[in-house]
Amino acid sequence: MSLLTVKDLQVYFPVRGGFFNRKLDEIQAVRDVSFSINQGETFGLVGESGSGKSTTGRAILGLEPQTGGTISYQGHDVTKVAKRQHQDFRRDVQMIFQDSFSSLNPQKRIASIISEPLRNFENLSKNDLKLRVLQLLDIVGLSPDALYKYPHQFSGGQQQRIGIARAVATHPKLIIADEPVSALDLSVQAQVLNFMKKIQAEFGISYLFISHDLGVIRHMCDRIAIMTRGEIVEIGTRSDIYQHPIHIYTKQLLEAIPQTDVDHREQHREARLAMNQKYHQDKHQYYDQQGRAFPLVQVSETHWVSLPPNEALRHKILQREEH
C-alpha cells in the first residue's frame, strides 16, 4: 500500500478583474495531477518555474486551497483538512523549504525552533525534550552549542540542516522538500543531500522531492514525475526517465542539462539544438486541442507517459505482445 496517494489534484487560482472584480478566469496551476509515493522512497517532482510543482507540494500540506481531487494518506482520505488531525497527518508529513532562513523565526533560539513541533505533537518532559533536540542536532551534524544560538549565526547549509532537524523532529513518515538545495553552493549542497539520504536510511522516511535541477533529482530520486503547465506528462523510475524518456517535453528538458563532458560539447550542443527544433515542430502532437496533455498511458510496468491516442494505442499493442 502506498503511503500517500494524490488523485486528480486541482489547484485553480481565480483571476479577478473587470467592473465588479468578478472572477474572470482562472489560472490552472495544477490540473488533474495523480501520483503515489511508497514507503521509504524518494519521489521526484521536476519542472520549470510555473509548472505547478511547488503548488502541488504545498496543496498536499494544505498550504494552498485545493480546487478538486483527493489526497489519501495510508489509505485514509485526508482531502478535507478537518480529517487530518485524526490520521496523524500533521505530525507525519513535514516540509523543508528552499529558503530555510526565512522559514526559521529569527527571534527564537535553535533549541526552541527545533523543539516546537515536538511541543505541538508530543508530551515530553523538559529534560526529554532537550535530549531529543540534542539528538536531532547530532543527526544533522551540528554541535550542542548550536542550541542557544539564533538562525542568523549559521551559514546557509547549516540553516538548511536546522530546517531538516525541525522537519524530522516528530519522526515524520513523509517529508515534502521544496527545492531544498537550490539556494546552496555545490559543496554545501552535497552535504545536505547526503544528510537527507542518511536520515532516510535511518528512519525510513519518504520524500516528495521537488526541484528544477535534473542532476540533483537523478541523484536523489527512485521515481520521478515530469511536470509542465500544471500537468504530469511522464512518470517513471530513474532509468525510465533518464535512459528511456518518451514524452517530447522530457526529452528536450534532459537535453538542456549542461554537461561537464568537455570533449563532446559540440555534439551535445548539436543534439540539443536538433532536439529543440524537433520539440517546436512536434510538441503540438503531444497536447490536445485545448493545449492539455493527453491521459497517461502505461508503457511498461513502472513507466507512464502522456501520449496522443494513436501513439497510446501502439504502446498498448506493444505491451500486449510482450506479455
Binding site: S155, L186, Q189, A190, N194, R218, T260
Partner: peptide
C-alpha cells in the same frame, strides 16, 4: 578536484556525494 567530485553525476547516483570538510 573536490568541486568536480561533488557534482551529482550518473555514475555516483546511489553513493554519497563528496563533501568538502569545513566552511
Amino acid at each position: 578536484r573536490s568541486l568536480l567530485r561533488s557534482i551529482p553525476q550518473i555514475d555516483n547516483a546511489t553513493d554519497d556525494l563528496y563533501v568538502i570538510q569545513g566552511n
